[in-house]
Nucleic acid binder design. Structure first.
Lengths: 138, 138
DNA sequence: TATTGTTATACTCTATAACTATA
DNA sequence: TATAGTTATAGAGTATAACAATA
């Protein structure tokens, strides 16, 4: 099978890697109904107290309507809650529920296993170098 | 804004890079209705004559039903055609139309520009190293 | 006027499962 | 029986645009 110009493109190498990684992610976390954007959202909510939904969207690089969907799904799972903002009656203060905080222990551990698994063929130095090169893109 | 564990994950670095690259891809090729999977499909069809749809699906790493959709959209754009297989009456021989071959000149040039743009901050050696490290994943 | 969250709508990408024609 | 392509269905992820409430 020939892949032509695809083999020479940095973008395609990233795409291929991402497809494999996404699959391993879902295999490792699908049973908890956690997907990459959901994990990103929970982590960002956990690290930044009383975030507004618009701030979450911006941090994730997605549209506000997309953040609504992510938060809806996490609320449905019982991991995230919308509470009233103390300073802006239009806004919500996003927070993890107790259930969500509990789950984050298991989820984060599974994510770290997953990340170690996908980068197992790289030395620590190579992993660092890979992150550095990726961050240089864009 | 804090990103917690996300900053340490190889998988998240790839995800971030992929989002930026995807955006640049669509900015550069959206006017031709070309998306990453569509470009992959056209390239693979171009390089491998008389492919079956099932082979295309396998080469792209997606389900047969997904390949049907990609080929449908490319057929609608006038870039790809299903012709009868000479050897198997169940199967089609996929091929680029004349229109598709013409378009591939412009599309491939735009893709190469795009790929050069996203990797502009890396030296040639770094680009090679990045592809090597990405291929080691998975 | 501008911003916050929401809804409506639409499109892409992906999967599984069942179907038909053929092998 | 197995394979090739298709369709039906579903779900995630994304976007734009319009809206009500509030700033």
């Amino acid at each position: 099978m020939e892949y032509g110009v695809l083999d020479k493109l940095v973008g395609y190498a990233i795409r291929r890697a991402q497809i494999r990684i996404y699959q391993d992610f879902l295999d490792a976390l699908g049973h908890l109904a956690i997907t990459p954007p959901r994990f990103s959202a929970m982590t960002i909510i956990q690290c930044n107290s009383a975030m507004k939904l618009t701030e979450l969207a911006s941090a994730m690089g997605i549209a506000r309507s997309g953040a609504v969907e992510v938060v809806n799904s996490l609320e449905k799972l019982g991991y995230v809650t919308r509470t009233d903002s103390a300073t802006d009656r239009r806004a919500f203060a996003l927070a993890l529920t107790e259930n969500g905080k509990q789950a984050m222990h298991e989820i984060t551990a599974a994510i770290e296993d997953h990340d170690a698994r996908i980068s197992a063929r790289l030395t620590k130095d190579e992993q660092f170098e890979l992150r550095r090169l990726l961050d240089l893109l864009g």
